[in-house]
């Protein structure tokens, strides 16, 4: 019997498929849900010229900020790159070393969801009458103006969750869920780090948030780093 088994043993194996020029969706809202260990594995792996879709642009010199600092990211698609500790992105954006596509947060989430759901584009009221709607196609529906937004698909997604099984079924932890479910849907290969891998049948089918069909690989990271702790300790990756 050939069993479905999405578990990979190492972080290195998990990210080995990521190629230069890929679009990588990276989960997380600030540090909550940020798959730091997978991002660090991607730094070790070295794929370059990446387009990264993520709500924020990283903090300090670890995780997503370290990936940007290592010059692997040519373009960021995000809603909120300006945070107090987002020093790397700010510096490199000003130097013209990384491009920014700024997307309202709900539009970002829905573009990713649409990408995963086979919807190529949609009309939304968000950003009408603002500079972010400039040069975008508009349409009046029922006397209200809407902006056309296109779906986002990823070649890969990097996502963190609380528990997974070998089928790739996932449950998340509190507000660390954020973009994880839609990013798994929208990526050709969703690569997930789970705090715990449990036997099939352990996760309650009523409570599975991401069904395994949306997931390609799962790697166990039982003791993930906390970004805020790394920042307090002034850590940098590579260590």
């Amino acid at each position: 019997m050939v069993m479905i088994n999405k578990i990979v043993e190492t972080l290195e194996d998990a990210v080995a498929v990521i190629n230069d020029g890929a679009t990588v969706l990276i989960g997380g809202f600030g540090e909550a849900g940020s798959p730091i260990e997978l991002i660090h594995a991607l730094i070790d792996h070295g794929a370059k010229n990446l387009t990264v879709v993520s709500n924020n642009a990283g903090n300090g010199h670890v995780g997503l900020a370290a990936l940007i600092e290592n010059k692997q990211v040519s373009k960021m698609v995000c809603s909120f790159p300006r945070t107090a500790q987002s020093v790397v992105f700010t510096d490199m954006y000003r130097q013209g070393l990384v491009e920014l596509e700024l997307v309202p947060q709900g539009t970002l989430a829905e573009r990713i969801r649409a990408g995963g759901a086979g919807i190529p584009a949609f009309y939304t009221p968000t950003s009408v009458d603002t500079p972010l709607a400039a040069n975008k196609e508009k349409r009046v529906i029922n006397h209200e103006t809407f902006v056309l937004e296109y779906a986002i698909k990823g070649d890969f997604a990097l996502v963190k969750c609380k528990a997974a099984d070998r089928y790739g079924n996932l449950v998340y932890n509190k507000t660390a869920r954020n973009f994880g479910p839609v990013m798994c849907m929208a990526a050709r290969h969703a690569i997930v780090q789970a705090k715990e891998i449990v036997p099939v049948g352990t996760l309650d089918p009523e409570c599975i948030v991401t069904p395994g069909i949306f997931v390609s690989k799962v790697v166990e990271v039982s003791n993930p780093a906390e970004e805020s702790q790394l920042l307090k300790e002034n850590r940098r990756y590579p260590w």
Binding site: S79, F89, L100, L102, P104, G106, P125, T126, S127, V128
Partner: peptide, 21 residues
């Protein structure tokens, strides 16, 4: 969301979604 200053980092977050919905 933005002061429009050159070199400033624009950051919109969810504000535009909120005011539209």
């Amino acid at each position: 969301w933005s002061t429009g200053v050159p070199g400033g980092i624009p950051a919109v977050g969810g504000a535009m979604d909120l005011v539209s919905g």
